[in-house]
Design a protein around this nucleic acid. Structure first.
Lengths: 325, 325
DNA sequence: TTGTATGCGTTATCAA
DNA sequence: TTGATAACGCATACAA
């Protein structure tokens, strides 16, 4: 097993460890041609592979960063992660993705573990329930970027989307098409995107002079969502349109619609705020609000990289506009 | 920045580093109650966090494993990766996922980098073009598990699916439904699953007494696939069914079908060999062969974990049956 | 141009 | 029950 070390190479080549180290770090300038050859030969012969762990210990840099996603089942998360990986790949930085599963405890544990592993920085889809921890990292100057969700009152880098405005436009669009009874389906209002999307919904109704019917705001965990929708649809004033606040809600709504055999497009209009894979293959006429996930991930990665490089970040908050399709 | 080390804790608590180390490794047995208290207090006060990198260097174990997927855009890959992550999460082992992008050079580079980072083991969706490298790892006794694709003549752990048999059953099914002109769309036949699926296709036709028309075997890279299908569909004997050999082929076929406005189910039957997310929401009647991706990932993780633990693996090759839906 | 010595933060061995 | 001290594999300042 992998036992050959720099010392072995040095012995084989008949030089000292430092010289081998020089060689490995490509500082050939001060090195005899023959020395170089000897080292090359020795490395080849022994099949030497440098040990990055040892190097990391010395350099205090691991060339690893961590991503803590709120919930990996969201396609959006994977798109963002992919962008981040693509970016860091250019710098030979590896990315460790952890799934907090919407659980602040898990999130905290991951943050601590990744920091113990000395990752050079962290990109977090925050649960928003570990405020003290976020704050301490930022204060310490540890490289962090928050994605997707706002972290109030923290002077940290963050990359989010314009939830309120996009939702507003989407709802307005429905109203212009003549819809008056628009339902808003959402998971519990515990994180900023959901809250902000609801804000957009309410604002649109208000601006259009429509009254906000609390029954139309279906707030429930995924397992109960279908049941709650069932209640709403059994009532007198059935909605003619549904706004699904994210991918998971969308799936629940779709199942509901399928079970009830509701005709999409005819009886019911559906808008979803999230990137859904293959949605373009669906025949049903569904509108969706797309986040620029890849760009957001890229920007987050850039912000993190700059922090790791010790650069000053001029602009810390980025809001990417979403697009209605 | 994260400067507080074991030595600081030791000084603060008025004990030696070794004692602190004992404490951290929960070897309380030989430790005075008061000493323990002092150390606890010191850790708390200083906000000490152990450095896993240093520990790894000493222990020659990083609690990290790597996954090298052939192509991350396959949903199958992400499902398998998720299963692996879930498994290793139980042991506080982190997983680094790398995307070889079907490029043997990239694959080789990743293998080397991950090993340089001293990951404890590797799960690989092999490109099958780095045979010497695979072999050297296996010979060395380095923990590796191969997934999805066969690595011939190597006594290594592997987890694959029954490509030939599943395809055979699917094609037979089509034949029983009366189809005679069945196209087989596939990317270049460079890796074993594609080859094995084609085998199943041919065998089914042969067993049914049908002749194999080479024109019906559409082998092309994704960008050219639509064009080649176009050719086939312009010819005299249009197929009445298409077998899409994987997810990416399926997407190309779907686009083709949409552009040509072919009616799925009526004019054309489509079967795809891969796990496609949300395919159940599609109205079009598509059959699909599902790999037990999660189970495969779990098994691969188990096999790797056992190797890392230095256990002997009794059964190294696992073939999971796929299921036609 | 190359070698020596020291340190990075742990763990492990052995005395005390 | 606790404490020196030597590794682990590499990088680096400094000496030669």
């Amino acid at each position: 097993m992998e036992k050959v070390t720099m010392a072995d190479v040095a012995k084989e080549a008949g030089v000292s460890k430092s010289t081998v180290s020089q060689f490995l770090n490509k500082r050939y300038e001060y090195m005899g041609e023959k020395t170089r050859r000897k080292i090359e030969a020795a490395i080849e012969k022994l099949g030497y592979q440098p040990n990055y762990i040892a190097r990391s210990l010395k350099q205090k840099r691991t060339s690893m960063v961590g991503i803590i996603v709120a919930n990996i089942v969201h396609h959006f998360s994977t798109e963002v992660s992919r962008a981040i990986e693509d970016f860091f790949h250019m710098y030979d930085v590896h990315v460790i993705v952890c799934n907090a599963d919407d659980d602040p405890k898990k999130e905290k544990r991951y943050i601590e573990m990744l920091r113990a592993k000395q990752v050079d920085g962290l990109i977090i889809f925050p649960s928003e329930h570990n405020h003290e921890l976020y704050e301490s990292m930022v204060k310490e100057g540890y490289p962090v970027v928050f994605v997707d969700r706002k972290v109030e009152s923290l002077d940290a880098c963050s990359v989010i989307t314009d939830n309120t405005e996009s939702t507003y436009r989407a709802i307005m669009n429905l109203i212009e098409k003549g819809h008056r009874n628009i339902a808003f389906a959402v998971q519990p209002l515990t994180v900023s995107p959901r809250i902000d999307r609801l804000k957009g919904y309410k604002k649109a109704l208000k601006d259009a002079g429509l009254e906000i019917n609390p029954d139309y705001i279906v707030e429930a965990d995924i397992p109960e969502l279908k049941w709650k929708l069932g209640q709403l649809f059994s009532s007198a004033k059935k909605p003619t349109a549904i706004f699904a606040a994210n991918e998971r809600v969308f799936l629940a709504v779709m199942e509901f619609i399928k079970e009830r055999e509701i005709k999409l497009g005819k009886e019911m209009e559906l808008i979803v705020f999230d990137n859904i894979p293959f949605v373009h293959l669906l025949e049903a006429p569904i509108s969706y609000i797309i986040h620029p996930a890849y760009e957001m991930g890229k920007k987050a990665a850039e912000l993190l990289y700059e922090q790791i490089q010790g650069e000053d970040i001029a602009e810390k908050k980025f809001i990417f506009p979403s697009r209605l399709v």
